[in-house]
Design a protein around this nucleic acid. Structure first.
Lengths: 196, 196
DNA sequence: CGTCGAATTGATGTCATTCAACTACAGTGG
DNA sequence: CCACTGTAGTTGAATGACATCAATTCGACG
């Protein structure tokens, strides 16, 4: 049974029959490290559910610097919902940090699936979850120092702390790799132990 | 006709009959400048549609400093969607910048209204709009300088620039009032003219 | 082993903050 | 009508947090 099927049956009241019906044209895609799935300013025509591996979304500013928006490990959704829904230029890139297997969800899928109330309700829940994630991230960025954001990150995503290179964490936190290195050094000096 | 009714009839395919049915128990609320409508850590049990006036949402950090998240003038929605939907503690405060008149939307309203497909579809659109707003804000915060964020603000919300005190704009931009004052001075020196 | 990117460290620079003083102005009460 | 008060905004000087640049060191992998 696919990770996606297992996920849906567990999280929603969708039946096996309904699942078969809405997913009959669904495809999975294997992508390898470094592969780009969406480019800024292009239309996002697919939303991905990560079955295994790790993806990220990021913007590139006018100075050419990357700023990581989100990480998407197993059982996470990733895609530019804005671009997908409104057919507008994407606000960020999506690429692949580890070799991954994705469930590829396109408009025909959502059109069919949303006819099933239990899926439609679940999708609304996913959207609210997304709003929460963005809101929390926003709050952290405006109200917390770099050190606080780092501590929040390793608490909120302990598994990512191990899988993601430090310079990407720095990019996610909105600081340079050098600054993150110094913050970690300072935390070590203060006798801080992660995961204890 | 209320601003809300006008707005819905214009933006959706809801009929007059449907409108009457779903809004029969709906109330408007007049609130005055300074009134607090939602407190951080409380459950948000109402979403507001602003018929007239101006609201804001903001967090208070551990140092006691305010950080404005959003402004909501006429025909905008405001509320902690996360708290409302998941019954979780609110991530921010909401209060009143100008005397305002609000349409107060609670759970019974949404439960009834979402039975009408054209409303439910519209609500999904509103959620996507909210996601877009948050995403753009996030991108600006991580990828743009204070000056760029200010220029973006006055372009994106020209009417707010006039109605909102400067220290609130600074708070929205994530800087101090002093810094914004200096940025404006510098822009004036560079012969920058707003709204020209 | 040699190479290349990641991470650390040091020296220095920059942008925004902080704190404080001062101006401008609106609202209040004598 | 004028002092009194409080808030917004501006300006200056000192400070602080993080960035930048450059030089090593570390570690994975061919």
């Amino acid at each position: 049974m696919s990770v996606f099927k297992n996920y849906l049956l567990q999280k929603t009241s969708i039946t096996e029959d309904e699942y078969s019906k809405i997913t009959e044209n669904l495809i999975t895609r294997k992508v390898s490290k470094g592969e780009i799935l969406l480019r800024q300013d292009k239309i996002c025509s697919e939303v991905y559910f990560v079955q295994s591996g790790l993806l990220r979304s990021y913007t590139i500013d006018h100075a050419g610097k990357e700023h990581i928006i989100q990480f998407a490990p197993e059982e996470w959704w990733i895609g530019d919902r804005n671009s997908f829904y409104f057919n507008e230029p994407a606000l960020f890139f999506i690429d692949c940090i580890e070799d991954s297997e994705l469930m590829v969800l396109n408009h025909p899928f959502f059109d069919a699936a949303n006819l099933i109330p239990s899926f439609s309700d679940f999708n609304t829940k996913v959207l609210h979850n997304h709003i929460r994630t963005l809101q929390i991230r926003l709050n952290m960025l405006v109200a917390a120092t770099a050190e606080e954001r780092y501590l929040d990150f390793i608490e909120r995503y302990p598994n990512l702390t191990l899988r993601v290179p430090q310079w990407m964490i720095a990019s996610y936190l909105g600081i340079t790799p050098e600054s993150l290195s110094r913050i970690r050094k300072e935390l070590a000096r203060k006798n801080f132990k992660p995961h204890s």
